[in-house]
Amino acid sequence: MQPFRTLTSVATPLDRVNVDTDQIIPKQFLKRIERTGYGEFLFFDWRKDPAFEINQPRYKGSQILVAAKNFGCGSSREHAAWALSDFGFRCVIAPSFADIFHSNAGKNGILLVTLPEDQVQTLLDRAATTEGYKLNVSLEDETLIDDQGFSAKFSIDPFRRDCLLEGLDDIGLTLRHAAALDSFEQGHNSKFWLAARSQ
């Protein structure tokens, strides 16, 4: 996983609440067996509209998406995180995120920044009205600033932060506890009422 430290980029506004993962990447693109190549299908149906933000040349190359509440709800498809990251987004800012998307994003090196609704609204408005509007996000300092005087602290789970900063792989982290896992499993195996199949 690519480590995440700081990022300065044009911000793309997506002022819609409850953006679900079916919109982020529609089902017809879930049949592929690879992890890459989903970027071109990001927001496939919405992108048919030339006015849709992601299509606008002014947001080209943007790596920061500013969204409204409950971003990433619905299906657990990690393809949504793959599509965002493959398209070039490395950070999404919103007032709230759905659970499974939250975890999928982290595992793909995408930083999710949660800020109060009024602050996000300010960013959405500025990104929509100011051509070339940029944000700077620092995960080390947990700060988000623009050049119009906006400055906010955000907080993120310290473990998730370390993983992003170092680009750590979860399985490797878990295997540090292999001895605990082996001994737990030995005891747990005797609980036949929790076995998948009857013996």
């Binding site: 657990s76 498809r77 393809h79 999928n104 595992k107 979860d170 878990t174 295997l175």
Partner: peptide
């Protein structure tokens, strides 16, 4: 429900953070 990275995690370790 879990994402695909977690699917891999469970396959490899039978547990999840």
């Amino acid at each position: 429900g879990i994402g695909t990275s977690e699917v891999e995690h469970v396959m490899a370790t039978q547990c999840l953070p």
